[in-house]
Design a protein around this nucleic acid. Structure first.
Lengths: 362, 362
DNA sequence: GTGAAAGCGCTAACAA
DNA sequence: TTGTTAGCGCTTTCAC
C-alpha cells in the first residue's frame, strides 16, 4: 500500500475544462464572479471525471475543514451504550446532525470528552488541533462549561450549545425544559390531579433546575402547593427508586409523579408496583425524554418528547451559516418539546373512591 | 473569521527542541532510528507546547488519513433512528469502533449509502475521495456487495466485512449466525420443545440464510422435522405478524418460535397474545439481536446476543494493523454470539396437559 | 541517526 | 472575470 494519491484532482478538472485551478476552485465553492458559461464547462468536467475535492486539501489551503464535532460526555455516553437500555441521544443527534451536515458537504464526528477530568481542556484541544473542525456542538453537561466555551472562543471556532440559555458566544439552543415541565404538570392537573410530585435530575445539568422551575411555576399558577412533593434524583435508576420511595411514603402522597427522565420514571413505576399501586389507576406517571423503552413498558409512559434531532440539525445549520458569512440570530433558538399521552396517565380518583384525607375539592 | 492556522505546528516543536522537522516527524510516528535521548527531548517539547499533529496535514504529506469510515445502509439506518424502537446497532458500532479508533489516534466516521441506489459506486467514491479514509468497515447488507468491494480494492483501501464469510479481499468477520441459530434451537429443544418454528429475515441479507441453515441443521441433528415450521419475514414488524400468523394457524402449530430479529419476535409475541396464548406457557419465544427493547417486554425475551461492539473493535484493529504493516490473519474472524435466557422461553407442556394430537414422546 | 528539499491538493491574495 | 503565485503542515525521498 504505497503513497496513495487522489485519483482525480482539481488539476485534472482544470486541464479537462481548459481553465485555471482557481476557476475550478471558484466553481466548487460557488463563488460569484464566474461566468455561467465557464461555470457550466467546469461543472461538466467535474461530473465527467467524477471529481470530489479532498477535504484534507481543502483544509490545508483554506480555512474550512468541512468537519463538525459533536462533543458528548464520555462517561455517560459509554455507560448508556454498554447498558443497552435504549438511550438514543447519540442516534438522534446523528439523525439530525449528520444528515444536515451531509446536505452541505460537511461531516459530523462524534467525540467523547470527560466532563470531570481536570485536563478537559487538553482533551478538547487535542480534538481541535487534530481535526480543526469548523464548528463544535456542545451537549449537556458541556454546554455551559466555561472551560470549554472559553477555549473554543479563543480559537475562533464557532460552536452551538444545546440545552443552554445563557447568552454569550456560541449559539444557544434550548428545548425549553421549563415549558416542558409546565406542560407535564398541566396535563396531570387537567386529569384532576392536585398532588403532583416531581423527581428532579442531577444538579450537574442546568436543565434539571429548569424542569423543577417549570413544575413549580405550573403548580403555583394552578394554586397547588408543592410541600413534600419534590424529591431529588440524579437521572439514575437507583436514584429514581429512592426518590419514588420517599414521595410515596409521605403522609399525603402524590397521585401523580413527573420523573425528570425515563430511567427514574421507570424506577418509580417499579416501586409503585411493589407497593401494590396500579398504574395509572392509583398513580399517574409522566416521564421526560421519550427514549424507546417507554413505548414498551406496561403501561407505556406518557412522556415529554425531546426534539433532539431537530435541535442538532439547527445547530449544524447555524454553524455552517456563520462559516458562510450568512446572518445568524442573536437570541437562543427554541425548539419546543411536546407531550405524548400514553397509558401511564389517567384521571385522578374522585373523592368518592379515594381513601384519602385530602380536603381539596375539584 | 480569517485564515485559521494551526497554533502549534511541527515547526514550533522542532525549533523548541532544536532539531529538524524530520526528527519530530519521526518521533510522532514512532519510527526507528532515533536516539532515545533525541526522542525524549522532542517528546518533552511536544508535551510542553501541547502539540497535536493536524490530520489534514498528515494526510496531505503522507499516506495516512487517520480516518476510518463505517458504512451503513442509509434507508434502514434512518428508519431505525426515526422509529425510535431502540435498535442500537450504530451505537454498538461506535462503542467498539470509535473507542478502538481513539486508542490508536484514529477517528471513526459514520457514512450512509443507499444499497438500492444504482449509483452506489458514485456515492461511495464521493466519500472515499473526500475523506480518503485509511479503511472502511462494511456492514450488512453491504458486506458482500461486489460493486463496493471491487471499488475499494481498486483504490487500495483496506476494508472489513462484518457478517461475511466469503474469503477474498478485505477482512471477513462473522458472529457465526449459523451457530447462533443452532444455539437457539438447542436451547428450546432442551426445554422439551419438538415443534420449533423459525421466522427468516430478509433474503437481501446473507445472514438470514445462515440463520435458517443453523436452525435446519440443529433440527436435523435432533431428529426433528421442519415441515410447516419455516416462515419468511423481512425483518419488519409487519412481516413478523404475518409470519407468526401463518405458523400459529397451521394444523400442528409450533410450541416455540425463533424470530430472526427482535421486531419480528415482538410481533410474534403480539399475535400469540391476540390468539389467547400465554408466553411462555403456551408458546416459547427466542429472538435474535437483543436490542434494548427485549428487556422491557412482558415477559422479557430470551435472545441471541450479537457482539457488535466487539466485532467493530476487531475490524478497526485489523485495518490499523494492516496499515501499520503488521501481519493479519487470512481466515475470517469469528466472534461468537451467545444466548441470554429470559422469561420468554420455558419448558414445553407435557403430553398430559397438552391438548394436542401430537404423538411425539419426549 | 539526522537534515534539506520537494511536493501532496487546495485556497488566499494579488495581478492582469 | 480570470490567472498566477505562494503557501498551509506534514511526510517522503535522498543526501549527509
Amino acid at each position: 500500500m504505497g503513497r496513495r494519491r487522489q485519483s482525480v484532482t482539481i488539476r485534472h478538472v482544470a486541464a479537462d475544462a481548459g481553465v485555471s485551478l482557481q476557476t475550478v476552485s471558484r466553481v466548487i465553492n460557488k463563488e460569484p464572479n464566474v461566468r455561467p458559461e465557464m461555470m457550466a464547462r467546469v461543472q461538466a468536467s467535474i461530473e465527467k471525471l467524477g471529481y470530489v475535492p479532498s477535504i484534507a486539501a481543502q483544509r490545508m489551503g483554506g480555512s474550512r475543514s468541512y468537519l463538525i464535532v459533536a462533543l458528548n460526555d464520555r462517561e455517560r455516553t459509554i455507560a448508556d451504550w454498554r447498558s443497552r437500555q435504549g438511550t438514543d441521544w447519540v442516534d438522534q443527534m446523528l439523525l439530525g446532525g449528520m444528515l444536515t451536515c451531509a446536505e452541505h458537504g460537511y461531516r459530523l464526528i462524534v467525540e467523547l470528552v470527560d466532563t470531570h477530568s481536570d485536563h478537559i481542556e487538553r482533551e478538547l484541544m487535542g480534538a481541535v488541533a487534530a481535526l480543526q473542525p469548523d464548528g463544535v456542538i456542545l451537549t449537556p453537561p458541556h454546554s455551559e462549561n466555561v472551560l470549554i466555551t472559553r477555549l473554543l472562543d479563543h480559537h475562533g471556532i464557532s460552536f452551538a450549545r444545546i440545552g443552554s440559555l445563557k447568552d454569550g458566544s456560541g449559539f444557544a439552543l434550548t428545548m425549553d425544559d421549563e415549558r416542558a415541565a409546565r406542560l407535564a404538570t398541566e396535563h396531570l392537573a387537567e386529569l384532576g390531579h392536585r398532588r403532583i410530585g416531581f423527581i428532579a435530575g442531577s444538579t450537574e445539568y442546568e436543565l434539571s433546575g429548569w424542569r423543577v422551575a417549570g413544575w413549580r411555576a405550573a403548580m403555583a399558577a394552578l394554586g397547588l402547593g408543592v410541600d413534600g412533593l419534590l424529591a431529588q434524583g440524579d437521572f439514575s435508576y437507583e436514584s429514581g427508586r429512592r426518590a419514588a420511595a420517599t414521595l410515596l411514603s409521605s403522609e399525603d402522597p402524590p397521585t401523580a409523579i413527573i420523573g425528570s427522565n425515563d430511567q427514574m420514571t421507570l424506577a418509580t413505576l417499579e416501586v409503585a408496583r411493589e407497593r401494590g399501586l396500579d398504574i395509572p389507576a392509583d398513580l399517574s406517571l409522566v416521564s421526560f425524554d421519550d427514549t424507546p423503552i417507554v413505548r414498551f413498558t406496561h403501561p407505556p409512559l406518557t412522556a415529554i418528547v425531546q426534539p433532539i434531532a431537530e435541535v442538532a440539525a439547527r445547530a449544524v445549520e447555524l454553524i455552517i451559516a456563520q462559516k458562510a458569512g450568512r446572518p445568524t440570530p442573536g437570541e437562543p433558538i427554541v425548539v419546543p418539546a411536546s407531550l405524548v399521552a400514553r397509558g401511564s396517565s389517567a384521571p385522578a380518583r374522585t373523592l368518592a373512591d379515594q381513601p384519602s384525607k385530602s380536603l381539596l375539592r375539584p
